[in-house]
Simulated scan of single mutants.
Amino acid sequence: MMRHKRLEHRFVEHIPEILGPGVLYVSMEYATAVHSCCCGCGEEVVTPFTPTDWKMTFDGEAISLKPSVGNWNLACRSHYVIDRGQVIEADPWTDEQVEAERRRDKAAKARYYGATTVERPPAAAVTSTAARPKVGFWRRAVRWLGGGR
């Protein structure tokens, strides 16, 4: 049973060290939402916004996250949907369902992001922007935040 039936959202730049119960902290700067597990166990739940992870919608009043939040690595193994701030308990998953989802997620990431390392040709060999390797989302984010070159 879910202890928190509703999450109040707070837009923040940095996620606080101590999470308030029933609060969904949303950092647009870091494309992430964090909350204390809605079952009440107190564990931190991180939902990154990426093309292969969660999508966040804000309608001016409330926030929704898609897909559902499945806390398979937590002792509680809670599973719920956050829809317009409401926490809707979802059916538990079997170990087989969790493993199937992990395989699907890994395959989706491999399709979207491609290889994790890119062989770069010598600088003199690069003659056009089309020949340059694509820069990934996280590397662009780090550069944008001033942490990379």
Rank of each mutant, 00 (worst) to 15 (best):
M2D: 12
R3G: 13
K5F: 12
K5Y: 14
L7K: 11
H9F: 15
V12P: 05
V12H: 07
E13I: 06
H14C: 13
I15D: 09
P16H: 10
I18S: 13
I18T: 14
L19H: 06
L19G: 04
G20P: 00
P21D: 12
G22S: 04
G22T: 01
Y25I: 08
V26D: 01
V26A: 07
E29S: 14
A31I: 00
A31K: 14
A33H: 05
A33V: 12
A33L: 07
H35L: 12
H35G: 02
C38R: 04
G42K: 06
G42R: 06
E43I: 10
E43R: 15
E43L: 13
E44G: 10
V45M: 09
P48W: 02
P48N: 03
F49R: 09
T50K: 05
T50F: 07
T50Y: 07
P51N: 15
P51L: 11
K55L: 15
F58N: 06
F58R: 03
G60H: 08
A62M: 07
K66D: 13
K66C: 00
P67V: 01
P67F: 01
P67M: 05
S68T: 08
V69M: 09
V69W: 05
N71V: 07
N71L: 08
W72C: 14
A75Q: 12
A75T: 10
C76P: 01
R77I: 00
S78C: 06
S78P: 03
H79I: 07
V81N: 02
V81I: 12
V81W: 12
V81L: 15
I82E: 03
I82T: 00
I82D: 00
D83N: 05
G85K: 01
Q86T: 00
E89K: 06
D91M: 12
W93F: 11
W93S: 04
D95Q: 07
E96G: 08
E96V: 08
Q97V: 00
Q97I: 01
V98F: 03
V98A: 04
E99I: 01
E101A: 14
R102G: 11
R104A: 14
K106P: 00
A107Q: 14
A108T: 06
A108Y: 05
K109N: 05
A110S: 09
R111H: 13
R111L: 14
G114Q: 08
T116R: 15
T116V: 12
T117C: 11
V118A: 13
R120D: 04
P121M: 14
A123C: 00
A123R: 04
A124D: 07
V126N: 05
T127F: 01
T129R: 09
A131L: 05
A131M: 04
R132A: 12
K134F: 00
K134N: 10
V135E: 01
G136E: 04
F137D: 01
F137R: 11
W138V: 05
R139T: 11
A141W: 09
A141M: 14
V142I: 10
W144D: 13
W144A: 15
L145E: 08
G146E: 02
G147C: 08
G147Y: 10
G147D: 10
R149V: 10
